[in-house]
């Protein structure tokens, strides 16, 4: 155990703080007391081998889950799951969820006056291949209003959930789209102070993966925490 190499801690400003007052829901849900720093033990350095046997071949195509075709702009979303040392993260579960093309979720909590699409649930999952690659076929999500402040709108986004090899690499995040005019106004996107870190949540239009007469391509690489070069026990 004393030989275990732990995961690096994030650089200042590259991850959100728990309290980000412009995002009002964080005010009563962020811890007030400082977190207690602890070493990463075997518990933290391990994690589930989870869900792989429950991923079907069509689970990464969100346009094929119902009898008809969903409305909206089809897109191919692909990229790689990497760690911060640049190594691919193979055979790892990715789950995504998103609004439909009109900016509506099929969820009892979503009361936005925009139509549901009977042919779109907005949920998909896949497992990265041996080189960390993933691919989804979906519909470009719409922007939607929320009640955080006056005239608040969420930019178009897709939620991502990722595991990697341990509970230290667990990540839930949101992917955004290039050129979205709502990004400067969104308190959730802007909770990250480091601009490079913020911009890393924005996908790129990808002509290479765009399919003629069918769908536009977008590319987004996701980076999980990576292991430190030296065993934690030796660090002061």
């Amino acid at each position: 155990m004393s030989e275990a190499i732990g995961y690096k801690r994030p650089a200042a400003g590259t991850q959100p703080n728990y309290l980000h007052a412009p995002y009002q829901s964080s005010i009563k849900r962020a811890p007030n007391k400082p977190l207690i720093r602890m070493p990463q033990t075997l518990t933290e350095l391990t994690g589930p081998v989870y869900g792989h046997d429950r991923v079907g071949p069509l689970d990464n195509d969100l346009t094929k889950q119902h009898a008809g075709e969903p409305l909206g702009e089809r897109m191919i979303l692909s990229g790689r799951l990497l760690d911060e040392n640049g190594r691919p993260v193979p055979h790892s579960l990715i789950e995504i969820w998103q609004a439909n093309a009109c900016g509506r979720y099929p969820h009892p909590g979503d009361q936005h006056d925009a139509p549901l699409d009977p042919n779109f649930t907005g949920y998909g999952r896949t497992v990265t291949d041996s080189e960390g690659r993933y691919r989804f076929v979906t519909i470009k999500p719409g922007a939607y209003p929320w009640r955080n402040h006056h005239n608040a709108w969420r930019p178009q986004h897709i939620h991502f959930s990722l595991f990697g090899p341990s509970f230290m690499t667990r990540l839930v995040t949101q992917m955004y789209f290039p050129g979205d005019p709502l990004l400067p106004y969104d308190p959730i996107f802007n909770c990250v102070t480091d601009q490079r870190a913020r911009d890393s949540m924005i996908s790129k239009f990808d002509f290479e993966t765009t399919i003629p007469e069918f769908a536009l391509g977008y590319h987004w690489d996701i980076v999980l925490r990576g292991r430190d070069a030296t065993p934690m026990e030796n660090k002061k």
Binding site: P10, A11, T14, Q15, P16, Y23, S25, L82, D83, E84, N85, G86, E95, I96, W97, Y105, P106, H107, G109, D110, T121, G122, Y123, H159, S161, L171, V172, T173, Q174, I188, C191, V192, R196, A197, R198, S200, M201, I222, V223, L224, R225, G226
Partner: peptide
């Protein structure tokens, strides 16, 4: 590489 920034699961987490 810089690890991707985290974000909230949001109110519709149940879907995903």
């Amino acid at each position: 590489l810089m690890p991707t920034a985290s974000s909230t699961v949001g109110p519709y987490l149940h879907i995903g």
